[in-house]
Design a protein around this nucleic acid. Structure first.
Lengths: 234, 234
DNA sequence: CGCCTCTTTGAGCTCAATCAAGGTGTGTGG
DNA sequence: CCACACACCTTGATTGAGCTCAAAGAGGCG
């Protein structure tokens, strides 16, 4: 395949994403000047907390997690990203941006890396695109807030909410979560222990609410999971 | 005082805020077309979760909390806002924006309410201002993430962090928190119970790390508070 | 003066953490 | 090809930090 047709293929991929919808292929091409496709294996890191940010990008396929280390050196997962999500865009306008988080692939994934210069030259003065970025951010706030509201809820409420929230990221109306997810990752995302997550989810596996094939979680009884989400005072 | 000089006074107030710094007074005036100063008493609400968003604004003085109700009907505090903070700006670009949270005054406060139309006409095409808004958002992400990283930390770590984080919002190098804060509010912000917060803070009051005059918290021994923030496995 | 919000303290309980031990699957280097 | 490391999953027993419940005092406000 020639380089040109590779680029064409990617442009087509990009045009499906929310952030670029309503843009012409040539406009998208402009926005991606100097880009590069990064192919990652499971657990490979593309950005590390504290590094100077020379680039940002868009997830093409697979999934990535945004993480930080806790004071005790444990991984804390701040967000799960799926295809179409932008990474580190919103720090590009800063004078000397530094990645505030690390970004790690979950399973084989592809990432379109775009130089910061392209942002400064091409993205900055395009309000439409900037507002798309803002709307991605605002979705992220939504998830975070919804999770914080459940702070006092029992663990199974939190897990049920997380699974449903992740499932909703998926474009298709699938019942399989769009990313491979270990029990440990669920725990690290909710700020609880792996064992506690396992105890809740084994129960659900036994009662047939969910099914786990390798690290892919399938929701069999959405209605029951939603019931598990509700809770009442003691 | 004439209406004109009232406006001049406010413009001067605004020009001190980060979001408007480096803008001329007349540019700021443009951005505030149709604005109105709202004066609030303690616990008055300016926006309610779910309402259609016809306006947004900037905090002039005092403080406001951003809240939501938990499934059990308890107040959950998502963020504390101080003078210079923008409220609901980043949903203004949406087609039919709805406030995702409620906004409630903490003590007597003043808020500059700006119609959504002004945003669409004046803010939208000014990238400089939009980036200032983005930078406010990114600060907010910073706080939220830092808090999430402490999810497994003991309660006193979380409280110490919250107090220091709020103190850092203050412009001056004061040791008094820039907003009146009850124990219940600390609890609602951290997702714990009032009693637990009281037990930790009474201890600190006894040992002289902090002092509470009415609802104003003064940090007497920052070094000790920072020590309380560190923790180690079991 | 009664109502409301906030604070305080004590006693008992519970959910999730901790600790411990064993099992599985995958990759890798000798 | 085997051994060994590593990441993840699982289950059971024990423990403890923070929750719940209860009761009471201290302002502030209409």
């Amino acid at each position: 395949m020639s380089k040109k047709s590779v680029i064409d293929g990617i442009l087509k991929e990009l045009s499906n994403f929310n952030i670029f919808e309503s843009l012409s292929l040539s406009a998208i091409k402009d926005l991606c000047e100097g880009c590069e496709v990064i192919v990652n294996d499971h657990r490979e890191s593309i950005y590390s907390e504290g590094d100077i940010a020379h680039s940002f990008g868009i997830i093409l396929s697979g999934a990535y997690k945004l993480t930080r280390l806790s004071p005790l050196g444990e991984e804390v997962i701040l967000h799960f990203c799926v295809p179409g999500d932008a990474i580190a865009v919103f720090i590009m306008a800063q004078e000397k941006p530094v990645y505030p988080i690390s970004v790690v692939a979950m399973g084989p994934s592809r990432f379109l890396k775009i130089p910061r210069n392209t942002y400064l030259k091409r993205w900055k003065e395009k309000p439409d695109v900037i507002f798309k970025v803002q709307s991605l951010l605002s979705t992220r706030f939504g998830s975070i807030h919804a999770q914080k509201v459940l702070a006092k809820a029992p663990l199974k409420t939190k897990i049920a909410f997380l699974l449903i929230d992740i499932l909703n990221k998926s474009e298709q109306n699938s019942t399989i979560l769009p990313l491979p997810l270990t029990r440990k990752e669920i725990a690290d995302s909710l700020g609880v222990t792996t064992e506690s997550v396992i105890r809740v989810m084994s129960e659900w596996s036994k009662t047939g609410f969910i099914e786990t094939i390798d690290t892919n979680i399938k929701i069999l009884r959405m209605d029951e999971l939603i019931k598990e989400m509700s809770y009442s005072p003691t």
